[in-house]
Amino acid sequence: MTTPAGKRLTGHGLAVGLPARWEGRLYRRVVATGQQQPGKQQAFGWAGEQSHPILHLGNFALPASRGDYGTGAVERMGPENMFVALLEFGADCLGTALYAPAGVPRVRPGQFNPNGMQRRIAGQAGFQHFFTEANRPFCLYVVIGSHRNAVPLAKQVNAVLEQIEVQP
């Protein structure tokens, strides 16, 4: 599902209102079945993999093809851009120490780190946090286009995070 800015994106028990100039996509990856069928969408992952919801948000045009943690999108970011990925994990993660924090977190400027990126990109900084909300385990991964602009960018990211709703 894709939604234009200023609209509400819903699906898979998740919802988020998007501010102006933001766009979002909410989907579950197509998973491999062991056999590829002609004319069908190419699957990712491995046969038998469990697919969980993935929410991507950005204040720039998100490319159609992106990795779960924004590969393909973050390379296009400028210094004022932000990318948010919210990835759900399996129920087997519930109750583990990594997912013990409760609730969708808010970010602080000092939490962004250039070394927090999946792959370092000059000027950018990342933040990653695992948590549980509505008895569902998630990873929040946020990239800001400029570590130097962390204060105003963190404020904007938090405004979007406040709009995320998770249903049990």
Rank of each mutant, 00 (worst) to 15 (best):
N81M: 04
G123M: 12
S51G: 14
F131M: 06
N113Y: 02
A150H: 01
A125H: 10
E88Q: 15
N115Q: 14
T71A: 14
D68K: 11
G70E: 08
A125D: 02
T132P: 07
F89D: 09
H56P: 04
P109S: 11
R120H: 14
L98P: 00
L153M: 11
Y69F: 14
M77Q: 05
Q50I: 15
F44S: 14
Q124D: 03
A125N: 10
G110V: 03
N158V: 07
R76G: 05
A61V: 10
A122R: 15
A122V: 11
F112V: 03
F112Y: 11
Q156N: 13
A73W: 11
D68E: 14
P105H: 00
A159C: 07
T132L: 01
V160K: 05
L57R: 07
R76M: 13
P53C: 06
N135Y: 03
A91V: 12
N115I: 06
Q50C: 09
G78K: 11
I121R: 12
Y69P: 00
R119K: 14
V143L: 05
Q124A: 05
D92K: 15
P105Y: 02
L86N: 04
I144Q: 09
A47D: 14
L140G: 08
Y141M: 10
P152D: 08
N115S: 15
G70F: 01
E49R: 13
P53N: 11
S65W: 06
V84S: 01
G95F: 09
T71I: 10
H56V: 09
R76P: 08
K155N: 12
G126H: 03
L98N: 07
R148M: 03
C139W: 09
N149E: 09
Q128W: 02
M117L: 15
L153A: 08
N115F: 13
P101Y: 02
A159E: 15
G48T: 12
Q111I: 00
A97L: 13
Q111V: 00
F112K: 03
K155H: 10
M77G: 05
M117N: 09
A150L: 01
P105L: 01
L86K: 03
E80Q: 12
V142T: 06
G116R: 05
G70S: 06
P114F: 03
V107T: 15
F127M: 14
P63D: 10
D68T: 12
D92N: 15
G72I: 10
A61Y: 09
F127C: 06
A85Q: 00
Q111P: 00
D68R: 12
G58T: 12
G110Y: 02
N158E: 05
M82Y: 01
L55M: 13
F130R: 07
F44W: 12
P101W: 00
Q111C: 01
G126D: 04
P152L: 08
Q156V: 06
M82K: 03
G70P: 02
E133G: 00
G145V: 08
L153I: 03
E49M: 15
R136A: 05
G70L: 07
N81R: 04
P101S: 00
G95Q: 08
R120T: 13
A102L: 04
R108A: 15
V143P: 08
V157D: 06
P137T: 08
L153C: 06
F89V: 05
A47Q: 15
G123A: 05
F131G: 04
A73F: 10
N81T: 06
L86Y: 06
P105F: 01
V107Q: 00
